[in-house]
Nucleic acid binder design. Structure first.
Lengths: 195, 195
DNA sequence: GTCTATAGGTGGATAGAC
DNA sequence: GTCTATCCACCTATAGAC
């Protein structure tokens, strides 16, 4: 706010474009040139906002995680039913597909070996956050008798993240969001209490 | 066999190296230069065997699928128990991780939007093959009363492929094959008949 | 904050000698 | 089949003017 009031705005627009490019092409398949062309500036200008591509990628993951946390808080505030929470969680992945994208962090996991260490760490942290939120929903839901599953909540949470990430990417390859939605529904109905 | 008897051998070695590079770095993050350096030849020599990178990538998927089909035939020949078949199928993904790699086609699915159309088609065909084999195992296993699940076998097969692919990539990011193995076990035990 | 200009490297691919 | 040499496009990044 003090100086250059539109600095943040430009940075955000850069991140918006970069995010979409990662979600459709991957981290190693987009360039400063792609962003510059779309934003209508030169490549050099981008380096003012993000000196290195690795730094941009790192910020991208941090922002993606912050957006997720807000969405999870929204779910927690919107419903107390654990089944509804899981459905709305799966809907986050579905929405990405309807925007003709994949999950940013799912894509990055496939490129894990090529990412700079700070991005690798941020990526694992993103998955940890997903896992922890799901584990709480699962644990308390079962405690309340509204979810049915065996084994440790954390391990089931990992299964959910893995399944949804995998289904997200494969459905993208088929250009078919419905394919994801059916798979997610199949996955989640296993948690409904037996009547 | 007729002429240049070691032609196939060199091509295979190129494919071996390319395959490992895709499984660890992705299709867009390896170059002819990487292969040439490892094989001890020049980049130009590689173009004799594979004129274009897209052609190389296409052959890579075809060979990967052929290897899979052989592994599936081996499973079919080795056991009749559907649970054992599913476990051995999941073991294919685990073996990849123990070799410090991801599933080739899982990685490629994350780069789908950047692949030349022939590779996109071959990729979907690979997933189709997995799905079909699993659907047969699931359908006949349930018919024989040795598997327990509801819904269409094809849809359950898709869930299995998605979950295993996703778990494969995330476990790779954590450098932890055990993480995959626990998730796979959790996934498969849901299919055991209730005693 | 954005520009021009450029550095220094790597990408896939080709021509032609051997 | 493999080599040298080369092309041209593209990459990330920096210097310095405006």
């Amino acid at each position: 706010m003090e100086k250059s009031t539109n600095n943040q705005s430009t940075s955000q627009r850069i991140l918006d474009i970069a995010e979409r490019l990662v979600q459709t092409r991957g981290y190693n398949s987009f360039s400063y040139g792609d962003i510059a062309a779309e934003l209508g500036v030169t490549k050099a200008s981008l380096h003012y906002h993000f000196p290195s591509k690795g730094g941009l990628g790192h910020r991208l993951i941090e922002r993606y995680e912050a957006t997720l946390l807000a969405a999870l808080a929204d779910i927690d505030q919107g419903t107390n039913d654990p089944i509804s929470k899981l459905r709305r969680y799966a809907d986050l992945y579905a929405t990405v597909l309807h925007n003709n994208r994949m999950c940013c962090c799912g894509v990055l996991s496939a490129e894990y070996g090529t990412l700079p260490p700070p991005m690798q760490e941020a990526l694992r942290h993103y998955f940890d956050v997903n896992e922890r939120w799901l584990a709480v929903v699962l644990d308390s839901g079962r405690e309340a008798g509204r979810l049915n599953f065996e084994r440790e909540p954390v391990e089931v949470a990992r299964l959910l993240v893995s399944s949804l990430e995998g289904a997200n990417m494969i459905a993208y390859s088929y250009g078919d969001p419905k394919r994801f939605e059916r798979t997610a529904e199949l996955l989640l109905e296993a948690f409904e209490p037996k009547t």
